[in-house]
Amino acid sequence: MVIPHGNLTKAALVSMDADKKIVPVDMTQLRGILNYDPDEFVFTALAGTPVSEISKTLAEHGQFLPFDPPFSSSGATLGGTVAAGLNGPGQFRYGGVRDFIIGVKFIDGAGQKLKGGGKVVKNSAGFDFPKLFVGSLGRLGILYELTFKVFPAPQAYMTLSFNPGNIQSALDTACLLAGSSLEPFAIDIVPPGRLEIRIGGNEKANESTAGLIEKCAGFPASRMTGQMESETWDKLRDFKWAQEEFLIKVALNPSLLCELDNILEKIEASRHYSAAGNVAYISTERNNLLFIDDTLKKMKLSGVALRGDLEYPRLGWHPARKAETKIQSAMDREGKFLPL
């Protein structure tokens, strides 16, 4: 069996068994941008290309990766970001990695080179394999070339910090702003009750939007711009706050956020919520894992461990497993990849 990997920024997804039955395939040397045409809003790169390298190239043309890839400064690769299905806080504005991936080339268990999708921003021909690979955990094939749609980057950012004081108020304000036409780029909730809102656009427009956001929230905010502002989000994207052995992502929805937060508070797990309550990240020790797994199952939430030593990284409720198995058997007839 094989497991492809990049710079191991999400090491829990890469099983390295002691008896070496699973062969790791290091993708980091397969790197480089093959084609980038700023006028088309499209680039193609090899899977082992660090996302930071891509962001840098795009920035030279005033463009960016709107899904805001995490672990960028720790060396995350494009292929790893797709396989892990990870989005950063900036996904709130335009969508996640699934909304920007448009083409994939991959190797299946028989060693065949295959492809899905295309190289133009709009395409509905054939099955959407590019999306299927988002979150595939390196278990459906080895991605080696990826094509993405990109967008023009906002000229400037501003962050507004609110401190409603408790999780419920922070969430209420988050939902209010998420449903407003003020178009925030990021809406993150930091327990016990802080709210970080990132806006982007022309500097003057940001000033005026910031005023409207404060009005909508009904709280005054502290405002941040410039380098300090961007560093705040860099740290978040790199999970600097998460100090424990395990880092777990949970696909959440705002209705369940407070309930989950109360439970996590009791076991003293550090956590952070992003995308207006659509995702939770939990940092915890091994002794809480079973309890968290069980909690997620009861709450019908699905999770995946990104960091920490685990035989199998997925936690919680996975109702689609039956369908996943069907797809995996169709795609990996030789059984060369780990079960999903």
């Binding site: 299905g85 979150g135 699905s302 797809i327 999903l340």
Partner: peptide
Amino acid sequence: VTAEGTVIELGNRSTESTGPDLTGIFCGS
């Protein structure tokens, strides 16, 4: 419902998901 008559549930109520994006491949199939 798949063509075999099995009921499957793909994705969830979140903009985030874990595991391969089956909702994504069902669309456009």
